[in-house]
Structures are given as C-alpha cells and as structure tokens.
Amino acid sequence: MKAKKFIVGCVQATPSIFNKEKTLDIIYNWIKKAAEQDVKLLVFPESFIPVYPAGLGFGTVVGSRTEEGRDLFKEYWNNSIEAEGKESKKIAEWAKEFGMFISIGVTEKDTVSKSLYCTILYYSPKGELMGKHRKLKPTAAERLIWGEGDGSTLTTFNTELGKIGGLICWENYMPLARMSMYQKGVEIYLAPTADCRDSWNSSMIHIACEGRCYVIGANQLIRKTDYPEHLQKQLAEDRPEILSRGGSVIVSPLGKVLAGPLYNEEGLLTAEVDHDEIIRAKMDFDVIGHYARNDIFEYAAKDQPEIKNQN
C-alpha cells in the first residue's frame, strides 16, 4: 500500500575527493542523520563518489592529451565504483539497516570496457540495488571522462512511496528526456546536479510545475581547498575558490519551494511529501493526461525499460 505522507531528504555535502573509502564513511554519517529525522527517501548529489571533478582538465585540449592527464584519469577510474561492486553493496546494506530508499550519484566504472559513466544508483529498504540510470549526454568537457548512457536506463521504480525516477544535471534541459519520466507517471523526480547557478533553481521549479511532481535537486559543496594537495596543482587557475556552492532544493508539485535552496554550506534538507498534493496539482494541468494532445503530438523513446515494481 502506498504511503500517503512521508519525509524526503536531500544531502548537500563535500565528499572525500578521489577517495571512495572515506567518502563511504561520509555517506554513512549522512544516512544516519537522515534516519534520525525519519527520512524515507534520501538523495545524494551527482557523482558524489568520487566527486564531480570541477576545475580539472585531465590534460586535454582539442587535438592533444598529456601523460599527466592520463594518470589523472586512471586515479579517477580507480576511485570510481561498480554498480554491483563492494562499495555499492555497503550502501545497499545501510539502506536496509535504516529502512530507507537511497539514491546516490556515482561515477560508475565498467570493468569490461573500462569506460566510466555518470550514474544514479537506486537502493531499497530491503537492501537491494533496484537499478541505475546512466547519464544520456555528458556536457561539454564531461565527455572527456564519461560515456553516454542509453534508453535502457531511463527508468522509474514503483515503490511504496510512489513512482521514483529522475535525470542527471543537464539531462533535465532535454524536453524529451523529461517527457520519458512523465510518461512513466513519475511522482518523485530526482535531479542530482553539479549546476549551482540561480537559473538551476528556476529549472527545478519549472519541472515540478510541468510534471506536477515533487522535485528533489541535490548538489555538492566543493572548494579548491577540498581537493588533495596534488590535485590542487592541476586545478584551472581561473576557477573561483568555491567551485560549487550547492543550491540543493526540494519543490512541491505546484512549484512551491519546500526546502532550500541551500548555498555555501553543507546540510540536510527535508520536506514532507503528500500524494494528495499531486492530485490537487493535476486539476488544471496534466502533461500526459487531460492537457496532452495526442491527436497532434506523438512521443516515442527507444529501448524503454518496464517500470520496476518494488512494492
């Protein structure tokens, strides 16, 4: 039976950069804090393991790569995780320990191809990895380090909390990617990101209004001094001291900001989800229902997975 009201949480924090073991300790501490506030769904930012590598160029300009850049990529790869590896299994155990759904952004390594992907991992209170979503289109210089996902991971999960799904960072600017979430009836829309501009907060409000769903946007707090000393030397000199100021936020189905946006500090945002608010919001706009014009517009997405039932 679907829970009508419950608490969701959003973590804005700094990982231990390029150190997956210490970052796991940080993750556990935030899960524990969230459990103390009775959070039933906890969302972490984009690539929290091993970090969104803001300010690093990986020794690359058009037409040229350096040996130092290749070494940096290897270090990043070594501190990334497998979707079903030992680090992921630890997070699944914590989800069960605290009776919580958990979503976390990671850099996922494919041990066969050796490619990396920007991925959301989803865990259930049963201690299971429910599934994952790989970012469809890395943005700009992100393409140096991450491959492209495909339609097979444009997924949502039918849970006791409702239908949960989401997109990563600038995927949320792709109207048809958003539509893939709406077509699946997403009710709690997750948007882990590395975008800390004021305009991102506006996008979160827009998506909540467009999808008539709750939106949880999670970002990291990253300063130059958070990087290990050997990596600080590789940061672009023109970058500001605060590389990501955060901006995490939780928004209601009618676009009301329920928590945040949080800037320039770590924190745990929480808000109550009430499924009745989704119904109330659908009265005058439903992008896949009474406001749709299927006689005019057609929508198709390739290789779509079935909605996974986690009840």
Rank of each mutant, 00 (worst) to 15 (best):
E142I: 09
R197W: 15
P175Q: 00
L176W: 01
G255V: 05
P305L: 01
N78G: 14
E108T: 10
N264S: 14
S248G: 13
V273C: 10
E97I: 12
I120S: 11
Q232D: 08
A208V: 02
A301Q: 10
P228A: 00
T111A: 09
D25A: 11
V62E: 05
N264W: 12
I207M: 06
N309R: 11
L129M: 15
A218T: 11
I188G: 08
L262G: 03
M179T: 00
N158K: 07
K132I: 11
P138E: 01
A191L: 14
Y76K: 07
H133I: 13
I81C: 12
R134M: 11
I120P: 05
E36Q: 02
E128I: 09
G57R: 05
I296L: 07
I104S: 09
T111E: 10
S180Q: 04
E84R: 04
G69W: 01
Y122M: 12
E93S: 15
E142V: 13
K32T: 12
L116S: 15
R212F: 07
R212I: 09
C118E: 14
I102R: 05
G162T: 04
T270L: 02
L41A: 08
V249N: 03
L72Y: 01
L121W: 10
D284K: 00
E36H: 01
K137Q: 12
T14A: 05
L144P: 13
V61F: 13
Q304K: 04
A13R: 00
F18Y: 15
E171I: 12
G59V: 01
Q234K: 07
A281D: 10
Y227R: 06
N78A: 15
D284T: 03
E142L: 08
R70M: 05
K2M: 05
V249Q: 08
G267P: 05
E210A: 15
Y173W: 04
P15G: 00
D286T: 02
H290Y: 01
F44M: 12
S202R: 14
L268P: 13
W30N: 09
G211F: 06
E87A: 06
E171N: 15
P261L: 00
D276Y: 00
Y52H: 09
S124W: 08
I222D: 11
M100W: 08
C196W: 05
I205T: 15
D38K: 07
R178D: 02
M130Y: 10
E277Q: 08
K86L: 13
I288G: 00
R239C: 09
S103H: 14
T23H: 10
P45A: 04
P175G: 02
T23C: 11
N264I: 12
E36V: 03
T156W: 06
E160M: 09
M130C: 12
K96A: 14
Y28R: 04
S88T: 06
C169F: 03
P125K: 05
N19S: 15
I26Y: 01
N172E: 09
I81S: 15
G9P: 09
G247T: 08
F6W: 04
T156K: 10
